[in-house]
Nucleic acid binder design. Structure first.
Length: 488
RNA sequence: CGGGGCGUGGCGCAGUCCGGUUAGCGCACCUGCUUUGGGAGCAGGGGGCCGCAGGUUCGAAUCCUGCCGCCCCGACCA
């Protein structure tokens, strides 16, 4: 299959599409901008979801489910929020079809017009805060720490498999707190979970930071983000955690009684990651042979291939290996398909990004060894059968570490401090990646820079030290560097 | 919303300019035989309202009109 995939250097965008399709992750559906997530892609999403879900629950969150539809009036209760989402909402106006009186198909039944239109949720703050109003009466009801796994719809102009689709799967957390400090702390707790998940499970290094007012979520007071860097030097916002202040509490009149019997508005957060994470995984690690998956999220971690085809002796070794590997919690597939030859299988599993391949052949077995191949480095070597379980267990960890390190080194090599406009443009147009530069702090300058260079401020890194400098565009004084990049 | 491209068996395409036997090729699929340590070979076989609707014509995948859909690039966004 590798001969069918476009190389990164030839056309990065086409390469990405080829991988998504040829690795069997997803395909375009009959509906514009919407994708079908295929079983292999969904298995990957399930692994992402299950791990995150566990992390949310460990920090006291519980899951619930709110409606897909939101009454139009709800959306307009928070002014900035509606402004931010209005342009990309799908609207339900009718609830019934009828036979076309002039033809053969069906048409919308004009008598079934809804009194109030329903919006297909682009995000659920409004319906959830409308519900929280009834759930929160006293300080004893707080904090309220709820997450939902759901689909949302944003009517995007231009879509791309996993990176931006009109409908996507995500989780959205919505929490309510008695104090501002507690809400801010929650926002940061989640940001840490996202960063930890990205780095330890996806093996994608991220910068934790805060968004500029211009890049903030519609309706938030502060938006925190994890920003990752893709192999083409473009940044990808991979998760966001918002401190919403009392904006939604005020919009939906959610108050609680304090211990002193006083009415106070509650403080809110919301946070989410989506199927875009799969896009991040692909773009961060994969190569011209196909997908490269981090072992911790790979639906299949080890594939065993009989050489040249299954027989009793090979089956016996493979089956024992499977039992032993599974006992260690390692997912393994034994490919007994007799129709396909080994070379075909090798290429196929490389395309699918399976971290470790074990080839069992008669010739090797006579020497008591099997062949081990790792996807990340393409190395191949033989290993005694009796060592194999311990070896694979260790190898999966090595691969996980190695692809993280590779991505980390790449980011390091593509993060450049600059102090002048010439250097800024030069770096963006050559090495790309993150450019660390001083900015005068105004939205006006931010927008001018974006217009001139197509680079946006990805974030102000949380651990960025104070440092006196001059804005690269205006020369005005600045106290901190911010991270610019061209982004997805 | 602007620019470009494309709709022909499951997938990828040729054929369309210049209308003419039975619409073709590769992959995949089915059957059989031979193969088998990096994408096997041979033989046989099944599968198409050529995106939709009109029109021109003796005759349309091909020409004309209208529509629909999708993809890619840009502006906007997770």
């Amino acid at each position: 299959m590798s001969k069918e995939i476009t190389s990164r250097s030839e056309d990065y965008s086409k390469w990405y599409n080829d991988i998504v399709k040829k690795a069997g992750l997803a395909e375009h559906s009959a509906v514009r901008g919407c994708m079908v997530i295929k079983p292999y892609g969904f298995a990957l999403w399930e692994n992402i979801r299950d791990q995150l879900d566990k992390m949310f629950k460990e920090t006291g969150h519980v899951n619930a489910y709110f409606p897909l539809f939101i009454p139009k009036s709800f959306l307009s209760k928070e002014a900035e929020h509606v402004e931010g989402f209005a342009k990309e909402c799908a609207v339900v106006t009718h609830h019934r079809l009828m036979k076309d009186p002039n033809g053969t198909g069906v048409v919308v039944d004009p008598s079934a017009k809804l009194e109030e239109e329903l919006i297909v949720r682009p995000t659920s703050e409004t319906i959830i805060w409308n519900t929280y109003k009834d759930w929160i009466k006293s300080y004893r009801d707080l904090p309220l720490l709820i997450n939902q796994w759901a689909n949302v719809v944003r009517w995007e102009m231009r879509t791309r498999l996993f990176m931006r689709t009109s409908e996507f799967l995500w989780q959205e957390g919505h929490t309510a707190h008695a104090t501002k400090d507690e809400a801010v702390e929650e926002t940061l707790t989640i940001l840490d979970i996202y960063a930890k998940f990205a780095e330890e499970y996806m093996a994608v290094p991220v910068v934790k930071g805060i968004k500029t007012p211009n890049e903030r979520f519609a309706g938030a007071e502060d938006t925190y983000t994890i920003e990752a860097l893709m192999q083409d030097g473009k940044a990808l916002q991979s998760g966001t955690s918002h401190f919403l202040g009392q904006n939604f509490a005020k919009a939906f009149d959610v108050k609680y009684l304090t211990q002193e019997n006083k009415q106070e508005y509650v403080w809110a957060t919301s946070w989410g990651v989506s199927t875009r994470l799969i896009g991040a995984l692909i773009m961060a690690h994969s190569d011209d042979e196909g997908l490269v998956l981090p072992p911790k999220l790979a639906p299949i971690q080890v594939v065993i291939i009989p050489i040249p085809k299954p027989n009793e002796e090979i089956d016996a070794v493979a089956e024992k290996l499977m039992v032993d590997l599974k006992a260690k919690g390692i997912s393994v597939k034994y490919d007994t398909d007799k129709k396909k030859r080994p070379g075909f299988k090798f290429a196929e599993y490389e395309m699918k990004g399976i971290p470790v391949r074990i080839a069992i052949g008669k010739r090797d077995l006579e020497k008591g060894v099997v062949e081990v191949a790792r996807r990340d480095t393409k190395e191949k070597y033989t290993e005694p059968v009796e060592n194999i379980v311990a070896h694979v267990e260790e190898l999966l960890d090595h691969i996980q570490d190695n692809i993280f390190k590779k991505a980390y080194d790449f980011r390091k090599a593509h993060t450049t401090p600059v102090d002048s406009w010439e250097d800024f443009e030069k770096v963006l147009n050559t090495t790309g990646g993150f450019v660390s530069a001083h900015w005068d702090g105004t939205t006006e300058t931010e927008l001018k820079i974006k217009e001139k260079s197509k680079a946006t401020i990805r974030c102000i890194a949380i651990d960025q030290p104070e440092e006196a400098g001059k804005c690269i565009l205006t020369g005005k004084p600045s106290t901190k560097r911010v991270l610019f990049a061209r982004a997805y």
